[in-house]
Amino acid sequence: MKRAFSVFTTLLHDHTPLSASSMANLINDFKEWKLKDPPNYSELPIDANPEYNVPVAVKNAVFSKVPTEPLTGKLHLVCASKEALTDILDIDPKVAESETFIDFVAGKYLPKGGLSVSHRYGGYQFGFWADQLGDGRAHILGEYINSKGESWQPQLKGSGETPYSRFGDGRAVLRSSIREMIASEACHHLGIPTTQAGALVVSDEHKVWRDKTYSGRARQERAAVVLRLAPAWYRLGSFEILYKRNEPDVMRMLADFVIKHYFPDVDSKSDDRYVQWFSEVAHKNLDMVATWQGLGFTHGVLNTDNISVLGLTIDYGPYGFIDHYYEHYVPNSSDDMGRYAFNKQPDIILWNLEKFVEALQPILSESNKQKIKDIIATLRGYVQDKIL
């Protein structure tokens, strides 16, 4: 762990000077940094339950409008990714040390154009339907269009309770937050499709109780927040909850929205658009897992709510890298049956995709269903012959 963190800090504190032209295009006052107003996701149904931090079964919505619950006490910037700040957010790295930026990551400051929401989704966990899950401790703050024309959604993890918190307190601790930073940065630089981490802030005084070893001996740890970055945060479970709750109109709206904004190669006017879209989602995720297998990465919790429709590695929890080849490697201590072992990852991704198809049934024509069934058969052969 110490060696990994040493490598990690070396990446973050790269002192390679930026060119004068690059510096000229970077924002050096975070108060000037603005989000797209309104964000594209405002086109989708957003629940506006006034009791935003009370667990509730949300209906007919893709998001819930939820303000952040900022960290309290003395705040510190633990680290920030120079590449994420400059290449994604157009921010001078020095800005990360400013009070305004630290307040932003801590959930205290929402830039102009921001719309704080938490995403609703469900999922199959260890093979069983777990019903509504959602962003229980995360807030999407808005949408940023950078100087390259790319769209990115900043999300805070550990920023307070939401309607999806269930029995959680909406917080993250420094220990797990560092792991998130290490993993997302490492995977990005290894060429694995992934969400990225922009910065990490911790509080000296804000403490939460955690039972690290699940032994019944909880202790207090410092609360922290990670700034995560992705083009979008939609998961297979985003559609599964709509299927289970019998909300086909919302599902069709979400599917068409995702195709329009994130899958430019899909003909959005075609009767086969959902077939084309599924094929792309499947190939992106299988390409992703192929890179995992080649680099010895084991995700640890491949539930359907942890699978991105964009084919990005998402939600770094009990992940691990294999030091010496062992195909049955399981980094997750709660995975007693080894469901998500290293060698099972390709098959599990395919199983998850089959559940995704099941969820899409209400918006598929009979012709679409048969074509997707044929695609699944082809993909199964691909997994067996090319990945396993």
Rank of each mutant, 00 (worst) to 15 (best):
R3A: 14
T9L: 10
L12N: 01
D14F: 10
S19N: 08
Y41C: 02
P45V: 13
P55L: 08
P55S: 09
V56K: 10
V56P: 02
A61K: 04
A61V: 08
V62K: 02
V62M: 14
F63H: 08
T72F: 14
G73N: 11
V78C: 05
S81K: 03
T86R: 05
I91C: 06
A96F: 07
D103Q: 15
D103T: 12
P111Q: 11
G113N: 09
G114L: 03
V117S: 01
G122I: 01
Y124T: 02
F128W: 03
A130Q: 07
Q132N: 08
L133A: 08
G134H: 05
G136M: 14
G136T: 09
L141C: 10
W152F: 13
F167I: 07
V173Q: 02
V173H: 05
A183Q: 01
E185R: 04
T194Y: 04
Q196Y: 10
K207M: 15
R210G: 03
E240P: 06
N246I: 04
E247F: 08
P248M: 03
R252A: 13
I259Q: 14
V266P: 00
D272Y: 09
Y274P: 14
V275W: 00
V289Q: 07
V289K: 05
L295K: 15
L295Y: 13
G296I: 06
G296L: 07
V301R: 10
S308C: 12
L310N: 11
G311C: 07
P318W: 12
G320F: 09
I322M: 07
D323L: 11
Y326T: 01
N332W: 03
I348Q: 05
N352V: 00
F356Y: 10
L364K: 09
S365E: 04
N368T: 08
K371G: 06
I375F: 01
